[in-house]
Amino acid sequence: NVVVNGVDCDFYQHVQPALHSQRLLFVGNFECGANLEAIEWALEDIMPQVWMSNPAVRLAIAGHAMPASWKLHWNDPRIEWFGYRPDLRELQRRSALFFAPLRYAGGSKVKILEAMAAGLPVITTGKGVSGLAANNGEHYLGSEDGDQLALLITQLLNQPWRMSQLSDAGRQFARQRHDWSVAAQQLENVHMRLAQAAPAEAAP
């Protein structure tokens, strides 16, 4: 029996991303090595290619335990350091898409689901959506190759109609498969089956 990871879709349903903002958003817990590596890959290899095509693109980075040294190492005004935010909706409203270049599996993928629930188009890797029944090209855009990820970002930022498609499909996916109500119903079904399978208590 599997109970899916859940997200409060109602909490994010009124977020309207700024699809013309040219801002990418990454959120992660930086006590997790996979997120540290993702930022390094993004800033060393992927974003320089994006900026060659579109110097106006910005990357907003938010999350717990962000290393203080990053601001000095990557000293670029197009990188926006936000640290931990208990409520991501304002950042989501100011962003055009969610970018998660994760090369290592693990974690619960809640950040991907929250981004989808908020209507942010998602660009990620196969590891970024591991464990989710999301389809590349339908619910998100993905690649394992840094050059291709840079190209996907550059192309998508110039295709507002495609961004809207991904936004709607992501919201629908999150609500139908991962809303809290879905997870709660699955958990309730597990409890009911366990209760029915339990041996009856002996009469006194």
Rank of each mutant, 00 (worst) to 15 (best):
I123L: 12
G142T: 01
L43V: 11
G137P: 05
G33L: 02
G33F: 05
P48H: 05
A96V: 02
P48Y: 02
F98K: 09
Y140H: 15
E114D: 13
L97C: 11
G63N: 10
A134D: 07
G119W: 02
H139K: 03
A115N: 06
F82Y: 15
L113G: 13
A65D: 13
M47S: 08
E44F: 02
S69Q: 12
G106F: 12
I46R: 08
A117V: 12
K111M: 07
R58W: 04
A117R: 09
A100D: 01
K127L: 06
E80K: 09
F82C: 14
L91W: 09
A118T: 11
G146I: 00
L91H: 06
R94T: 15
I61H: 10
V122N: 05
A62V: 07
E44V: 14
G119V: 10
L102Y: 01
A65L: 13
Y104D: 08
Y140C: 10
S69G: 14
A105N: 13
D87M: 03
Q92G: 15
W51F: 07
N35T: 07
G106W: 02
R85K: 14
G107F: 08
Q49F: 07
I112L: 10
P121L: 05
A105C: 12
S143T: 02
A34Q: 08
N75G: 02
G131N: 01
W70V: 00
E40R: 15
L97D: 05
E40K: 11
I79N: 11
R85Q: 15
F82D: 05
G131H: 10
W70T: 00
S69D: 12
G131Y: 08
H64G: 06
N54C: 08
P48A: 08
E114K: 10
A134R: 06
N75I: 02
I39A: 00
L72R: 15
E90N: 12
S53K: 05
R58H: 15
W51A: 02
P55I: 00
P101C: 06
D147F: 08
